[in-house]
Structure formats: C-alpha cells, structure tokens
Amino acid sequence: MSRLALPYRSPVTSCVRPEPWQLVLDGAVTDLPESLDFWDYRMDIELSRTVHVDLSTARAGAGLSDGSVLSLAAIWTASGSNLRGPVQRVPLSGDGVRTVNLGAVLPGARLGGVLSLETVLVLSRTAGPAAPFAPRRAGSLLWEDTATLRLQGDAPLFPMTVIDFTHTSFRDDAAWHLQLGSDLNGAAMGSMLLIVNEKAEEVSTAFAHAAKPGPVDRVVLSMVYSDCARIMMEHALSKEEFLDGADFAEDSLGATLVNLFHRLFTGRTIQDLRQLRQTSPSLFATELQAATRILKEA
C-alpha cells in the first residue's frame, strides 16, 4: 500500500479518531452505504460525521507550538460532474480532545458518478517557535481519510429541471424533453438536460418520489428512462464520429453515450445497431424497448 511522504513532520494517525460518515434519508440516520441504487439528480445528499481530534498530540507530533491553530475540513468530489466543494471547515485551537460535528446537504444537481468524501486535518496558522522540519505553511496536510458513495439508479443520470412548458418553445401538453449537445467531446454535465413539464404532475411527482417510488412512480420513471435511452442512442448513431473503438475523453458526452451503448447492447457493435436503425427502424425501436427493460421494474 502506497503512503504519501510529506516534506515535513506529521503526527501519528491516532491523534484523529473519526466516526463513520452518516447518511440521512427522510430523517433516518444510517452508516454510509457503498451505493445508492435509487438515486437521481433531484435527490440531495445529506451527510454528517463526528470526528475527535487530540490537538495536543497532533501539534506535538508535527513539531508545532501550543498556540498553532489547526482546522478540520471535509471536501466532496463527484466524478460524474467533475465538480467539488466544501462540506464544512472548523478551526481548532486550545488543548485536549475536541469533538467536531461535520455535516452538509449536497445538491443532487451537482453530483453524479462516485461521490468522494475527503476529511483532512490541516495547519491554519502557526504561533511561536516550531521544531525543525515542522510544517509552516497554512494548508499543510497533517491527516486525511477518504470515503466513497456510488450514486446510481434507474432514473436518467443527468441534470434535470422542472418548468412550465407554456413559456417555452415546447408543446405545453408534452411531459418532458431531453436536450443533448452536438459535440460528443464536450463535457457530459454541460451537454445533457432533462426538462420536465411541471404541468405533467405524474412525471414531476415520480421524480420527487424517486428515493422511494410508489407503483405509479415506478411506471413513470421506467417510461422516462426508456424514452431518454432511445433519444440518446438515436442521437449517438446520427453522429459519424460515434464508431466502434472511438476514443472519447472521460466524462464527455461521447464517453457517456458509449457507456450507455455497451450497457444496453452487450456483445453488439455500434455498426450493427446503426445498420439495424437504417434498415428497420421499428425493429430498432423494439430492441431498445427490450434493452431498457421498460416496465419490468414497475
């Protein structure tokens, strides 16, 4: 196992005693699971964690003076959106053991993929003389640990918004519209948007209940997922650069479409599916219907 070699003294890891991350769902608190199978972009993630820090031991181990200020912070990173942000940062001064409660509600629209939660103890400010090779710069890392949560689900994994179609160019009696960018090398998060008509109450309600869908919600979500998959595959197959063996950048629209293709049509080739769409559109539609397992989870 590799270990980060710091160019300055660092305390023993036992100076920080973290408790597990907690996930809050509908008021119930549980330990952070490996994945959330029912997650979608309309579901915010509420997290909390308690960490105990022995400040005296941490400073002594790093060769810092008693007056030095440390900070405990948590940062989140989402692989699906390539975004990151702070959970919370708490300055720590004084002596003895401090108990810190970290917590935040992370907006689902900014997440996706694997959510990484990094907790760190860093130097904020030195005070007085320090031992040789002690850290001196603010932000110097003294301790860290990382937890992950895979966000996945049956709902389409892309940003979405709910608006009144009356004020758009879409037909006001349509239920949803999937917007896709034309550049397959563009970032996926900036190239996809599911727009739901707020007047289509069954659809907006289904997404609001995505964490714990009822029977009707499951039917609606299954239909939306199947239709979005169809639109995405037709969009991909209409692009000349969408070919077998094409190399798109990670987290690009092209990479997302390639991953969706292989998930839906394991063992098939893009050329095979493109030819099927050209020669028999109705059979192509039926193949997509079967691949997305429409209504199978309802």
Rank of each mutant, 00 (worst) to 15 (best):
V105F: 01
Q179N: 14
V24C: 04
N197R: 05
D31P: 11
L221E: 07
A249W: 06
L151N: 05
A109S: 14
T50H: 06
T205A: 15
S116V: 10
D95N: 08
A104S: 07
L111N: 07
K199M: 07
P91L: 03
S222R: 00
A249L: 11
L295N: 11
A155Q: 02
D145A: 14
M232P: 02
E297S: 14
A174N: 14
F133E: 15
R89K: 06
G113C: 10
N185S: 07
W39S: 05
L102E: 12
S35G: 08
S222P: 03
R3P: 00
A285F: 06
T269D: 06
L123F: 05
S2M: 07
T292A: 11
R263P: 07
L106P: 04
G108K: 00
T50A: 11
I231N: 06
N101E: 15
G153V: 05
L221W: 02
S116A: 14
L283Y: 10
G186W: 01
T286R: 10
A155Y: 01
S226E: 10
L260G: 10
L149R: 02
N197G: 06
H52R: 13
H209N: 15
P11G: 06
I45F: 01
E144L: 09
A78S: 10
A58S: 11
S93H: 09
Y8T: 01
L184S: 00
A255K: 03
N82Q: 12
G108W: 02
R89G: 01
T77L: 12
S35M: 05
L257N: 01
L257H: 01
W176S: 14
A62P: 00
G67Q: 06
I270R: 00
E118R: 09
S79R: 03
S2L: 08
A175E: 15
M223D: 11
P86W: 04
A78I: 03
S65Q: 06
I294G: 09
T166K: 09
L23M: 04
A138N: 06
S280A: 15
G245A: 14
T30V: 13
V122S: 13
